[in-house]
């Protein structure tokens, strides 16, 4: 299957250079809806859903390929190859910040710059390294998520038929957001929270911007600083915004920081 079909790729906007946005665990490409409009006048925009999320083709899922973040990174490279993109500015949120870093290592000519929003190379504490989570906590979390996904995957993505308070969202509201295949989402949670990609950080050769929320229980500040310290050519911006999704809660601040970087 074509990577563009498989990953529900959408290409729009105008400009010489390309920005590709990668959503994190728990959501889909709608994650970027408050950020993308600020760039589409001057950049070509590439949006996609990871396999298992949004409108991706879940039949393309293979537990082997997607058993590590590498499989997801491979998809980014395949999309870039199919669209014949080069020198892409890759913006990744949450786990996709790391997936993006892996893609940059795999295909350094396809990707020219990397923006990592709320990155973490490893969620579990390890000796001196503070990831923010204990092993027990992650086990408890995966357990909880697996129960919630089995029973309530549908309830977490309610279909709503319009929202007068949010006219800017338009008719797309009739669809549901951040839908995920329950079985794949369970796997993705495990792959995400068990990942350890610290050794990949020094291999990222492209200029990199690390965007860090001032309060984030998923990716604490010291983790963001760790990423900055281990990617050779990196900048670090501490946002005023709090929470794990500044691209949704403080899009203006995120847009300003990315603009200054690109």
């Amino acid at each position: 299957m074509s990577p563009a079909l498989r990953n529900n790729v959408r290409v729009f906007g105008s400009g010489e250079r390309v920005m590709m946005f990668a959503h994190g665990y728990g959501c889909d490409q709608t994650m970027w809806r408050y950020v993308v409009p600020h760039f589409q006048d001057r950049f070509r925009i590439v949006l996609f859903d990871h396999v298992g999320a949004g409108a991706s083709h879940i039949f393309a899922y293979s537990p082997t390929k997607y058993g590590t973040l590498d499989g997801y990174a491979q998809d980014l490279v395949e999309i870039a190859e199919e669209l014949d993109l080069s020198d892409v500015i890759l913006v990744g949120h949450s786990v996709s910040a790391m997936i993006g870093a892996l893609a940059c290592v795999k295909a350094p000519t396809r990707f020219g710059k990397l923006v990592m929003v709320g990155p973490s190379p490893r969620y579990i504490d390890d000796d001196a390294y503070r990831g923010g989570f204990s092993e027990t906590q992650i086990a408890e979390l995966l357990d909880f998520l697996s129960i919630n996904y089995q029973g309530w995957a549908v309830a977490t993505a309610p279909v709503i038929m319009g929202n007068p308070d949010r006219p800017e969202l338009g008719i797309e509201l009739t669809d549901s957001f951040c839908r995920a295949d329950p079985d794949i989402a369970k796997d993705f949670a495990r792959v995400t929270f068990m990942s350890d990609n610290r050794e990949d950080l020094p291999r990222v050769a492209v200029p990199t911007l690390v965007l860090q929320s001032s309060e984030d229980i998923i990716a604490p500040i010291e983790v963001g600083e760790y990423v900055r310290d281990h990617i050779p050519n990196s900048q670090f911006v501490l946002l005023e915004a709090t929470g794990h999704c500044p691209n949704l809660s403080a899009p203006d601040e995120v847009v300003r920081a990315i603009r200054a970087f690109v």
Binding site: M31, P158, I160, C178, S249
Partner: peptide, 22 residues
């Protein structure tokens, strides 16, 4: 807390409401 940050808060930001979640 993690579920709120990764799932519920993004949904609230995107569509303004969530219904009957555990």
């Amino acid at each position: 807390r993690v579920y709120w940050e990764t799932h519920l808060r993004p949904l609230l930001k995107i569509q303004g409401n969530i219904d009957g979640v555990a």
